[in-house]
Design a protein around this nucleic acid. Structure first.
Ligand SMILES: [Mn+2]
Ligand SMILES: [Mn+2]
Ligand SMILES: [Mn+2]
Ligand SMILES: [Mn+2]
Lengths: 219, 219
DNA sequence: AAATTTTGTTAGTCTTATCTAACTTTTTAA
DNA sequence: TTAAAAAGTTAGATAAGACTAACAAAATTT
């Protein structure tokens, strides 16, 4: 049984693992907001528990077991977000922080009941896939809006970040999942994009914002 | 801010405080299932935080502040139980253990939304009062079934214990909140009671069971 | 190929929450 | 009113999770 802290490290490892194949102590320390010696200590303990592979000076790796544990925490997180938004009526900008706490609840029954009530959803309110009871899920490969060329048409499918601040920004701009956008222009200097969608014409989105939007390309 | 452990001590103090006016280190140790030195240490820390009054060799007391904190944890526990049973469809025998975890979630919004969805309930699934957002609630004074005399008629209003085991026993006997019972006989030897209710005649309930049932006396 | 910078490790400390063993104070019973 | 039992306290230890300071190894630059 991972402790609550262990669970947060596992989740962090999982996310780092998605990007960089090789995870450094420094990376994990930044993600967890702890010092390098703290990470160093922790990975030794987590190796002892079979979740991490650690060799002095070598990059960290999640073991199969560790990946499995991480997947179940992510399931609990995303089911919670979905329940909070669909059943309890919270906005997609409010649910992440609450789910961050709820994901550590131990009761399997609780999450399975949520799953059932929601009709076994496969996506959370931010478009991320929800692993099923066996830990399986499909990871659709959307691309970042920031990587799409001028003139293309895309649909927003998921967010890469679900902080309240980021989503409030999207709410203000009336951007939601499913919104179809056309890229009108890309400013070479700062990589900001001018896009059109629904009733909005020529909205400028910074590179930072475009980097947080996962889209499906239509043309 | 109390830690999760602090919260459990506060709750334990609250329950002991309801019975015995004077709470001993030993009592609290038993309730929390920790050793006396552990309690001794902890009460010093909790005094420093203003929740407990502690003087060497004297009985423990919850301060006004400590009582307030305890009340809010109990609010979260009971709202959770109510939500689990009314919205998520769990049985009254299943909810206590899940609520034991949920009561430590920090998000006020989450519990306030539950409260709203439930229509601001004043009783939990076991008949215990739910403190409102300001910590106020009325504690009706029911009596223990074990203290009622022969021939009297009573209605079950609340449970003094909400373990799955105890409630499964009640479920088997088809005893629920609102059940009206008549006391036919009391065995002097072991204080067991013979009671009649609904379609059941001459059901024998042990003193232990009668001690867990809070009733309103009708005659 | 050095020199420098970045990354990782060790050693030592802290806090919270727990324990056991030993001792002291208070309470209860003879 | 003393002896025994119960309750409470102190001292010392441990484990988890964190820190800083100091040092070592690896990677990058000159
Ligand atoms: Mn989230
Ligand atoms: Mn999400
Ligand atoms: Mn309960
Ligand atoms: Mn209850």
């Amino acid at each position: 049984m991972p402790t609550q802290t262990n669970e947060n490290y596992l989740k962090a490892l999982y996310y780092l693992h998605q990007k960089n194949s090789a995870i450094s102590i420094t990376d994990l320390g930044k993600e967890m907001e702890v010092s390098k010696p703290t990470v160093n200590d922790m990975v030794k303990k987590m190796q002892a528990k079979g979740w991490v592979k650690y060799e002095k000076y070598k990059p960290l790796q999640l073991t199969k077991q560790g990946l499995r544990e991480a997947t179940f925490i992510i399931r609990k997180h995303r089911l919670s977000e979905m329940f909070l938004s669909q059943v309890m009526g919270f906005g997609w900008e409010e649910v992440h922080d609450m789910a961050e706490e709820m994901e550590h609840l131990k009761s399997e029954m609780f999450f399975d009941r949520m799953d059932e009530i929601l009709g076994f959803p496969t996506k959370d309110p931010h478009g991320s896939p929800i692993p099923d009871k066996n830990g399986n899920f499909v990871k659709p490969d959307y691309r970042l809006l920031s990587q799409v060329e001028i003139g293309k048409k895309v649909v927003l499918r998921a967010l890469r970040e679900s902080s309240t601040e980021f989503i409030n920004f999207l709410n203000n701009k009336e951007i939601k999942l499913g919104t179809t956008m056309t890229i009108k222009q890309i400013e070479p200097f700062d990589k900001s994009m001018t896009v059109c969608y629904t009733t909005h014409t020529d909205v400028i989105l910074s590179h930072t914002v475009c980097n947080g939007l996962l889209v499906e390309q239509l043309t």
